[in-house]
Every structure is written in C-alpha cells, then in structure tokens.
C-alpha cells in the first residue's frame, strides 16, 4: 500500500501539469533540493542551505517563526470575522456580541483572534529582545533590524486599530486617550489626529478608518515587510547563530 502510494505520488510528480507548476522535481541530490527551494516563490525567500546550529532552539527560541505563526492565525481568523462584522456605529457592538453568542464557532474565532493578537505583540517584543541581547542586530544585519522595528510598529498599529472595533466603552476610551496622545506631536499633532479619526471625536468615520487600516492597509504592509525581512535573512548570511571565531 505504502509502496503503491509512493509510486502514485512519483507518477503524479512526473505528469506534465505537475512539472509545469513545480519545474524541478524532487530528488535525492542536493541540487534537486536546492532547486525545489529556489524555484518556489514562497520558499525562495529562505536560504537553500542553513547551518544546523541555527536550527537549535537555544539560538532563536523560534520567536520569529512563532511571530509569523500568530500572524498567519490572525489572517486566517480575521477574514471569517469580517463576514459578520459591520464597521458601523449602530451595528459594530451588536455584531461583536453576535459573534460571541449567535454565530456558530464565532466565539472560538474571535477569542483565537484576540489571544493570538496579544501573543503576537508579546512574541514580536520577545523576538526583538532576543535579537538585541544576542547581538544579532550587528552588521551585516543592521538593515534587517530596522525592518524588524518597522514590523514591531506595524504589529502595534494593528493591535491598536483592532482595539477599537468591538466598539465598547473600553475601546472607545482607549482610542480617545490614544488619539489624544497624537495631539502631542509638535505643530501637526491636531491635524494628524483629525486625519486619523476623520473628525474631532472618535465616531463613525474613526471606526471605518480603523477598520480599513486594520483589515487592508496594515496587514498588506506587514506582509510586504515580512517578505523583505525573510529575504534579508538569506541575503545577510542566514540566521545569526553565534560569534564567528577569529583565528
């Protein structure tokens, strides 16, 4: 059975359709493996080869991978949540309540989204601390550190914009306080606040703007910067796995 399944898979990989999609086949040689990574749009961001040491838990605590994992969970749970949520003042709070009490598995998706969001903020911070204390931000990886800081900001903005969407008292006052912090920016503070909220108070315009930022603009920006981040890991010589011993 196992043999025949393996044979069938081998046959499948030999078909014209398969080869048109994947070009290089699998194979026992390093060249085959390298081509499989290199010719895949997603895998090619990563290195074809890495040091075995950089795979060990103590080097990274897998914090970057875990951050990506929470981001993927947030995308996968966020899209279904969008199907029941209307970003409008009369409906937002009721929709959030519906998701918790009326929609099948709504409470699971919402809670998974919420807890993953908290976890992502925590993991991204932990990732940056780990990178900092190991000195992995040093040249030639200094630009990737900057990309990482941008990703931290995007994570915080995603967290902040998502905070308004339940449209409850906590959300309303948190965004009122947060947007008043923007007013402290010299010269342009009140103008920026006006643009962010689309008005003078946290209102219908603010809810819609935060929704668009949370669901479209910021995730798209995060995805682009994540791609650059991963590609730079490869370009900067792989994951930093320790001091290079000088002769």
């Amino acid at each position: 059975m196992a043999n025949s399944l393996a044979e069938q898979l081998a046959n499948l990989r030999d078909t014209r359709v398969w080869r048109s999609i994947f070009r290089s086949g699998f194979g026992p040689t390093n060249l085959h493996r390298a081509l499989a990574v290199q010719q895949n749009v997603f895998l090619h961001l990563s290195s074809v080869k890495i040091r075995k040491r950089s795979l060990s838990f103590r080097v990274t605590w897998f914090l970057g991978t875990l951050s990506l994992g929470t981001f993927l969970i947030l995308v996968a749970t966020g899209i279904p949540l969008m199907l029941y949520y209307h970003p409008s003042v009369p409906q937002a709070y009721a929709d959030m309540k519906d998701l918790r009490f009326a929609v099948s598995a709504g409470v699971f998706l919402r809670n998974l989204h919420r807890w993953s969001a908290h976890a992502m903020v925590l993991l991204v911070f932990a990732h940056l601390f780990k990178v900092f204390y190991r000195g992995a931000y040093r040249p030639p990886r200094e630009f990737n550190w900057v990309i990482g800081v941008v990703l931290l900001m995007l994570t915080l903005f995603l967290s902040y914009t998502g905070y308004l969407l339940p449209w409850d008292q906590l959300a309303f006052w948190a965004i009122t306080v947060g947007s008043n912090l923007i007013s402290a920016v010299p010269v342009f503070g009140t103008k920026i606040r006006f643009l962010v909220l689309g008005g003078h108070t946290v209102n219908a315009n603010a809810l819609l703007r935060f929704y668009v930022l949370h669901c479209v603009v910021l995730p798209l920006a995060a995805a682009i910067f994540v791609a650059i981040h991963f590609w730079r890991i490869r370009k900067d010589g792989g994951i930093y796995s320790g001091e290079i011993k000088k002769p």
């Binding site: 006006f194 643009l195 689309g198 008005g199 003078h200 108070t201 209102n203 219908a204 315009n205």
Partner: peptide, 12 residues
Amino acid sequence: GYEFLAPNVLYE
C-alpha cells in the same frame, strides 16, 4: 491625498 483624507463635511 491630504485633501481627500480630511473630511469637508462632518456629521458630528
């Protein structure tokens, strides 16, 4: 972009 993002009519 600035002109577009700054609402001219507010329903406040």
